[in-house]
Design a protein around this nucleic acid. Structure first.
Length: 687
RNA sequence: GGGCGCGUAGCUCAGGUGGAUAGAGCAUCAGCCUUCUAAGCUGAGGGUCGUAGGUUCGAGUCCUACCGCGCCUACCA
């Protein structure tokens, strides 16, 4: 069953492992086994209320959440919409509506407020009991597969912070989809035959005069950061081209040899690319990011994916051979295919070249072939070999040209998300236009450019790093830096800096712990801070990377959420340490008892906040916005921090209240841990 | 020129399907550690939501125009 593949998403290694022994002895309130979120309790109530009103209202009923908590939990603005047609004041209509609807299960009362709102107050006791009894559902996932392609770093140098945003966004989206029951395949496309790899090979061969054996030795040398070395070498090669334009011939020659698999140069290119891919996967694994499959450009070439796609494109007349103008001799796609509103003035000059006049295919062409394969429309498949087994047992496969056994089925998705920055939207449009021109309208519709804005550097950070800025750059909110010049912040450097800072903080608070333990804690804090930082911004907001902000451990950060989660665990631990027995929540906390305790407004708001986790994730998936999950996590942590400050759980004298507070703590814990799991953030043992 | 995106507090950003008094974090100021409690909590100040029109009972949100900024608009990937 596909659910097996999804299980790793929800491994509750936090409180659940910590409390496994408690679960043996006492009835744990919520069996946490399945990896799929149940339908949102809150959302179901909203629907029930809308349905109740729908019988009395001639149009779809909308519900909203009031801005002020004192107005109740759900508001129905239907009276405003009816006021015009009925020609009656909204307030009168609202009163009549509320009367007509009568009693709704789970709802305590309907109130008319303002000039016509119907505010709904929920039955707090019933709501709490539902939360208490909520069981993880087995899920109703479909067999349809969603493909998410992300990371896609050119394998010619170390990863930088821009790549981190891509990978964290992509990985979190994968987790979100899996949490809502979908089957997801995470693909990381490797362009191992492009000019970027060629340039590093040129650097090794022509600037460094190194043999393949010598490069091998560099890769094998644990004292050498090969991806960092290539970072510098790539920058040097780019500079050399600028100073010696004739050297561009080296690149052409190298590119040709790589594409045709000729001699030592091609071998060297493969060696370099593979080593860099291993470095990238290691970097990403530090951030809890894993992949299922690595489709590589070299196999797209050798298995003639493009040739097959080319035939289809020609046959369906999606592209044509240009006979005049600047694109003479090229196979091009007319701009009318991928640009709206240019039909009339569409000129051949605007057409997109798919095959160059020398017969070689452009990147977009190969991307069309790849996209066809993702949907199972190419009529061809890669062969696969095991690339790596992660410490948790998960396997990642890479494409290969030789038949091998044991690999799962890859590709053939029904929906495809390409996590690619917004600068490439033009190329993504061309790919989609290709599908459309081939007659695959449904797949074109299901090809989603999951775009995001770039990560630039704040002027302050540029200055800190010794990057020279013009006076006008200094006034900008952000500065885009060039990887070709070797500028930018390397991913591993940032992670190392974060860990070092977290380690100092952890050590100052927990000097008694072993160094290894403190380092493990610091690592989780650093990764949590980094992932949260990359997720807190909406996708189309440019991140002006600033060391000061990225290193912040207070305020709206992953650290804050981790800290709140640790506090939930700590309460349970202290409770057990105090010698008290874990209450049987289900029998102690009846609807009446819940209602008594939830008369306290703070407790009620806490319960509401925590119960909205599923709804928050559903909404984030629907809007394709991982930042919504991050924001929800922060709000939930804030809610708990208030609770933590206001109530004493362990020493609460009243038995019923104590049991209630303890239950609410465990509920908070469950929702926080699940949310962090979706964000790919682990909780340290202590902080 | 065309396409996409952005413009909300001193700074960085949120603001599902138009709705009630526009919210967070940072920074500033004033308080809170014998506690499950300071990577935290409470409070204060801080806003012509780029500008001008329009639609609507109602606009930060939708429409139009304009201003400013960014990215894209390669026989590079």
């Amino acid at each position: 069953m596909f659910i097996v593949r999804q299980l790793p998403v929800f491994k509750f290694d936090g409180l659940i492992a910590f409390c496994s022994e408690i679960r043996e002895r006492y009835l744990w309130h919520t069996p946490i086994v399945a990896g799929i979120l149940k339908d949102s309790m809150f959302h179901l109530l909203e629907k029930r209320i809308a349905d109740a009103f729908a019988a009395h209202v001639p149009r779809p009923v909308q519900t909203e959440q009031p801005k002020q908590t004192s107005f109740g939990e759900i508001a129905v603005p239907a009276a405003f919409q009816l006021a015009r047609t009925l020609k009656k004041p909204p307030k009168v209509i609202a009163a009549e509506l509320a009367e007509a609807v009568g009693k709704i299960p789970g709802v305590a009362s309907l109130e008319i407020a303002g000039n016509g709102y119907i505010n709904v107050r929920l039955d707090r006791g019933a709501y709490a009991v539902a939360a208490l009894k909520q069981e993880a559902s087995a899920g109703s996932g479909t067999a349809d597969k969603v493909i998410v392609e992300h990371t896609n770093i050119n394998p010619n140098k170390a990863a930088h912070i821009g790549h981190l945003r891509n990978a964290v966004l992509g990985d979190t989206f994968v987790r979100m989809l899996r949490a809502t029951g979908q089957t997801v395949e995470a693909q990381n496309y490797i362009d191992n035959t492009g000019v970027q790899v060629a340039d590093v090979v040129v650097g090794f061969e022509h600037l460094e005069h190194k043999s393949a054996a010598q490069v091998h030795a560099l890769i094998a040398d644990p004292a050498v950061r090969f991806d960092y070395l290539c970072w510098d070498l790539y920058a040097r090669t780019s500079q050399y081209y600028a100073a010696h334009p004739e050297a561009i011939e080296w690149r052409k020659d190298t590119l040709h040899k790589i594409e045709h698999g000729e001699g030592e140069t091609a071998t060297l290119a493969h060696t370099v690319a593979d080593a860099i891919v291993r470095a990238h996967l290691t970097t990403m694994y530090r951030l809890n990011i894993e992949y299922d499959v690595l489709p590589r450009e070299s196999e797209i070439l050798h298995l003639q994916f493009w040739a097959t796609a080319f035939e289809q494109l020609k046959e369906r007349k999606a592209i044509y051979l240009e006979t005049e103008g600047k694109n003479k001799g090229c196979w091009v796609m007319p701009s009318s295919a991928f640009r709206q509103g240019v039909e009339d003035e569409a000129s051949a000059e605007d057409s997109k070249v798919i095959v160059r006049s020398n017969g070689t295919v452009t990147y977009v062409g190969k991307d069309i072939a790849y996209q066809l394969w993702k949907f199972g429309l190419l009529g061809k498949d890669f062969f696969y070999r095991l690339w790596h087994t992660y410490p948790d047992g998960h396997k990642v496969w890479a494409s290969t040209t030789e038949a091998q056994t044991g690999a799962p089925n890859f590709g053939g998705g029904t929906r495809v998300y390409n996590v690619i920055d917004s600068r490439q939207s033009y190329l993504q449009d061309v790919v989609v236009a290709g599908l459309n021109a081939l007659g695959y309208a449904a797949q074109a519709e299901a090809s989603i450019h999951f775009s995001y804005e770039m990560v630039a550097l704040s002027p302050r950070t540029c200055i800190e790093m010794g990057i020279e800025l013009s006076d006008e750059d200094k006034k900008r909110p952000y500065v885009e830096v060039s990887g070709r010049k070797g500028l930018g912040v390397k991913a591993d450097d940032l992670i190392d800096t974060l860990i070092a800072k977290a380690f100092d903080e952890v050590s100052s608070r927990n000097a008694e712990q072993s160094e290894a333990s403190r380092r493990a804690v610091a690592t989780r804090i650093a990764i949590g801070a980094l992932r949260y930082f990359m997720l807190k911004y909406t996708r189309n907001s440019v991140i002006a990377f600033d060391f000061g902000e990225a290193l912040a451990f207070t305020g709206e950060t992953g650290v804050y959420v981790q800290y709140a989660t640790i506090r939930t665990r700590k309460i349970v631990r202290k409770f057990l340490d105090s010698g008290q027995a874990m209450p049987d929540f289900a029998s102690v906390l009846t609807a009446e008892a819940m209602a008594r305790q939830l008369a306290d407004e703070t407790c009620w708001q806490c319960l509401l906040d925590a119960s909205k986790m599923e709804a928050a994730i559903e909404r984030a998936v629907a809007s394709g916005e991982p930042s919504h999950v991050a924001r929800y996590a922060f709000q939930l942590a804030q809610s708990f921090s208030g609770f933590y400050d206001k109530f004493q759980v362990v020493t609460e004298p009243d038995a019923e209240k104590r049991a209630f507070l303890l239950w609410l703590t465990t509920y908070f814990n469950q929702q926080l841990e699940r949310t962090l799991q979706v964000l790919g953030i682990e909780v340290p043992d202590y902080m």
